[in-house]
């Protein structure tokens, strides 16, 4: 596969397979087994999506579970089965926003330590045998954080959904309930800022030379 082929594959709009659509229809009709199969299909994608934004494994797992429970409770409201993926991601986005709101509130009253993620990561580093791998991960996410910090919240969200979660522009617009042109504008601005930052060029270079 050439560079062009792989890039085009990545940018192809993601449509749901007929098998998934059938499962969504069954789940909408109330079949638990069908929904369990959908969980199997999407749990890794949702876990990744949450982890990109939360960066604490335990919290990410808990949130992933809550997202699927919430989706199960509300799946009867889903009118168009083809929108299942974007619908699931919109639930996830909202749940993550709640998580941040709650954490902000807890931090305000000192009920939550300021750098919980760092503490847990350090603990993991102390006891984990794969210290080197963890250090690499930590460094990577630090670089990503630095890179994303130059973006506005909207640009960051669109960028993550497009290039990390690999959603199509249409799916992003459905997930964020914004028009496609707005999504494209945010994405364009994000890329413009990215190109200007030297740290990003290094990060992109690292990504390519994996």
């Amino acid at each position: 596969m050439t560079i062009r082929d792989s890039a085009q594959t990545q940018h192809r709009p993601a449509t749901l397979s007929p098998q998934i659509i059938t499962l969504v229809k069954k789940a909408t009709a109330g079949q638990r087994s069908a929904f369990n199969q959908l969980i199997d299909q999407y749990q890794n994608a949702i876990m990744r999506m949450v982890y990109y934004r939360v960066r604490i494994q335990m919290d990410a797992e808990d949130l992933t579970q809550e997202i699927f429970f919430k989706a199960y409770r509300n799946i009867s409201r889903l009118k168009d089965p083809e929108r299942f993926r974007s619908w699931l991601f919109s639930i996830a986005i909202n749940r993550i926003r709640d998580y941040y709101r709650k954490n902000k509130f807890l931090k305000l009253f000192g009920a939550l330590p300021e750098k919980e993620d760092t503490v847990s990561q350090n603990k993991a580093l102390t006891y984990d045998s794969k210290v080197h791998e963890n250090l690499l991960k930590q460094e990577f996410w630090q670089q990503v954080s630095n890179a994303l910090n130059i973006l506005s919240p909207k640009e960051r969200e669109v960028f993550l959904l497009r290039f990390f979660d690999q959603l199509s522009l249409k799916e992003i617009s459905q997930t964020l309930q914004k028009s496609e042109s707005t999504v494209k504008t945010h994405l364009y601005r994000a890329l413009s800022k990215f190109k200007k930052e030297r740290s990003i060029t290094i990060l992109l270079g690292n990504g390519q030379n994996k």
Partner: peptide, 28 residues
């Protein structure tokens, strides 16, 4: 294509850097 590929690779690397979920999620 190089820029697209760089961004694609960044996304792929991010996938590798996410810990695997421990256990399957099941409805109660």
């Amino acid at each position: 294509d190089h820029l697209s590929q760089d961004l694609f690779c960044l996304g792929q690397k991010a996938v590798e850097m996410v810990p695997v979920i421990s256990g399957r999620i099941r409805l109660p």
